[in-house]
């Protein structure tokens, strides 16, 4: 609980601030959209959190979102695959991408940054290639499948919980159980803290690291499909651009250390929420020009990690004296 207190306070502060200065922030429609977006980005963030906990990084997420987001309508509309085959197929492709990252990083000892940076370039290029850079969309069809990503469970006449949020909660709970209650979650944290010590203790560290990259890519693949189902179409040249950075930022805000070993799922989800509320604020508050979005997001993250570091140092000093 102590670990997520800081980010929780940040969320409440940003939320209250936006409610005070932004028009329509508290409207049912806006709140629904906020939940929906938080859910979609939250899924990506949980994926990358696994990788970050191992001490690695996954820069390919945005391009995997592009590949799967464009690939799904491409398969279903252009090649007329039924959803029951196309969806699992896309997930398998995402899993294979993660597997190849993991193998290159563990067996060839390549650096995660380099491997996934190449992934970032390759998957976007491939997608633009096989789609011939044409926008891929469902064209008003498949409303049954798309309902998963853009319908809601109505609570009142105006407000409801988006289904994407339900998906996020299920994934978050599963991720939390994996990380905190299974021996594999413990292995993951152990190797993130000290890979040698974990290996010396009999942990199959390579296999756990590969698993983390598979999780990351699969959740990016799932996220990519949900994104395109949500909006209806995807442009290969910019779909998912920078999403890896949003996901990494949310994970870092949520308490994941890029040095590895640290991170909580709840913190990461809250981190994703902070990112979305900030984005929402920039769009709703008329006197903040929308094109400075990145500057605001960057500044808030910087302030958050600086205060986190200062709190940690103060705690360490108390300990030495005590």
């Amino acid at each position: 609980m102590k670990k997520i207190l800081g980010i929780l306070i940040t969320l409440v502060a940003v939320y209250v601030l936006t409610a005070m200065v932004g028009d329509n922030f508290l409207s049912a429609y806006n709140q629904e959209k906020l939940l929906e977006r938080t859910a979609l980005f939250g899924i990506l963030s949980i994926g990358v959190a696994f990788v970050i906990i191992t001490g690695g990084i996954d820069l390919s997420i945005g391009s995997v979102v592009c590949l799967t987001g464009c690939g799904l309508p491409w398969l279903m509309v252009k090649h007329e695959w039924p959803p029951a085959i196309a969806v699992p197929m896309v997930l398998v492709v995402a899993a294979l991408i993660g597997l190849s990252h993991g193998l290159l990083i563990t067996k060839l000892n390549l650096q995660p940054f380099v491997v996934t940076l190449c992934g970032l370039l390759i998957y976007r290029g491939l997608t633009r290639g096989f789609t011939e850079d044409q926008t891929q969309g469902f064209g008003g069809e498949f409303s049954g499948l798309r309902a998963v990503a853009n319908e809601k469970i109505s609570l009142t006449a105006e407000f409801g919980i988006p289904w994407t949020w339900v998906i996020l909660v299920v994934i978050a709970v599963m991720a939390w159980i994996f990380l905190n209650k299974t021996i594999y979650g413990r292995y993951l944290r152990a190797l993130g803290n000290n890979e040698d010590a974990a290996r010396f203790s009999g942990v199959n560290t390579d296999r756990m690291i590969i698993l983390a990259y598979v999780f990351s890519s699969m959740l990016a693949g799932l996220g990519g499909m949900l994104f395109v189902m949500n909006v209806g179409s995807a442009q290969p040249s910019n779909f998912g651009n920078f999403y890896e950075l949003y996901a990494i930022a949310a994970a870092v805000l949520g308490g994941c250390s890029l040095r590895g070993g640290e991170g909580t799922i709840l913190g990461v989800v809250i981190g994703a929420a902070v990112m979305r509320v900030l984005y929402n604020m920039i769009n709703l508050v008329t006197w903040i020009p929308t094109h400075i979005e990145f500057a605001v997001v960057g500044a808030v993250i910087l302030v958050a990690v600086i205060s986190d570091e200062l709190v940690k140092r103060a705690a360490a000093r108390r300990r030495v004296r005590g």
């Binding site: 413990r186 292995y187 152990a190 803290n193 010590a197 974990a198 010396f200 203790s201 009999g202 640290e262």
Partner: peptide, 27 residues
């Protein structure tokens, strides 16, 4: 760097090798 995992608890360090054999219930 090889023996202990400094940022984990005494308990988690002590049980790390045993998780595979004695300190698990399935997964």
């Amino acid at each position: 760097t090889q023996g202990a995992i400094l940022d984990m608890a005494v308990l988690e360090n002590a049980s790390l090798a045993s998780l595979k054999r004695d300190a698990r219930k399935g997964a």
